[in-house]
């Protein structure tokens, strides 16, 4: 029994960490219509950032500031934001697929940099040297994992609430207006270019936060963690959950992540021994089927966007 609880704690921690990245993407795509194909880049900036800022200096390593944890996380988020600002200046005027492939290129470049720039990022062997906060204080793996789950959950709630508030605020309406008709928004005296950039940076910072929590959990990061499949995973979670809807984003993350890893568990439990070597391949087919079937049954995602015009309108509406 304790085993099941322990596993669920672990599963939910990763689920919530990924949910945060999906929420960041929802701000960019669901609210603003920015097709960011470089999720892994900003997630990676946060993940590497937290270890570079919070980790200790190792031999052969140029960076490692050993900052206290909250500062390391803040630094990681800012690093993701800085990257997003530079990338955003060049790319946010692009549309749809053009933006996607341009930002995708950035993600490839970031992964490549992490793989090759050994003095800074540790190269392909990865980077460690980071004490998980409170691990020595709690000193029991189960309770530590539980405490970390609660911490991640609190962060998720905070991010969720901020995004919900943005969604219902005038700024959120502006984002949707730009998504639906940029020219109309511009004719109302708004500056779509600036707003798009703001949404891009803020969304990317949330992804960076998710990356920071991810690297904290493993106390290790390597280029293997930020390969393109991550971007696809995050995107499938949003689309399956329902873009434009924060609840859908979190829900979609848990569903897709459960399907992604759960399919492997189910197969090992029920597949005959001779099949075991092929389980990995069959697992991928099952993952594909889960995504395709969900979208066939609910093409707009599990929880599609509900358009809320404004909080005040919602309030006057007779229930």
């Amino acid at each position: 029994m304790i085993g099941i609880v322990s596993y669920l704690v672990f599963f939910l921690t990763m689920g919530f960490v990924l949910s945060i990245a999906v929420l960041g993407l929802n701000l960019q795509w669901g609210y603003t219509g920015l097709f960011n194909g470089g999720v892994a880049a900003f997630f990676g900036a946060g993940a590497y950032g937290v270890i570079l800022f919070g980790g200790s200096n190792k031999a052969g390593q140029l960076i490692g500031f050993g900052l206290p944890y909250p500062f390391a996380v803040a630094g990681a988020v800012l690093l993701a934001g800085l990257l997003a600002w530079i990338v955003g200046l060049i790319t946010t005027h692009l549309r749809h697929d053009y933006l996607a492939i341009a930002t995708f290129g950035v993600a490839i470049a970031v992964e490549n940099f992490a793989r090759n720039a050994e003095p800074i990022t540790g190269g392909a062997k990865g980077l460690r040297g980071f004490e998980r906060p409170f691990e020595t204080v709690i000193n029991d793996p189960f309770w530590f994992n539980l405490a970390y789950l609660i911490f991640v959950f609190v962060v998720l709630i905070i991010v969720y609430n901020i995004l919900e508030n943005i969604g219902q605020s005038p700024f959120g309406r502006l984002l949707r207006a730009i998504r639906e008709d940029e020219v109309a928004a511009q004719s109302l005296g708004k500056s779509p270019a600036r707003v798009r950039l703001q949404a891009f940076i803020f969304g990317s910072m949330i992804m960076g936060l998710s990356g920071a929590l991810y690297a904290t959990f493993y106390a290790f990061i390597s280029p293997q963690d930020i390969v393109p499949i991550l971007t696809f995973q995050i995107w499938s979670m949003l689309i399956v959950g329902g873009s434009g809807n924060n609840k859908g984003a979190v829900f979609g993350t848990l569903i897709v992540w459960a399907g992604w890893v759960g399919s492997g568990w189910v197969l090992t439990q029920f597949a005959p021994v001779e099949m075991q070597l092929y389980i990995g391949t069959i697992q991928f087919i099952m993952i594909g089927l889960i995504i395709v079937l969900t979208l066939l049954i609910r093409p707009k995602g599990l929880l599609p966007e509900k358009l809320i015009i404004s909080r005040s309108v919602a309030r006057v509406k007779p229930e």
Binding site: I239, V240, S243, I285, I291, V292, L295, P299, G301
Partner: peptide, 13 residues
């Protein structure tokens, strides 16, 4: 985007 990620699923399969 639903089409895009359905196609991603198809690619995996």
């Amino acid at each position: 985007l639903s089409m895009v990620f359905a196609s991603f699923g198809v690619a995996l399969i």
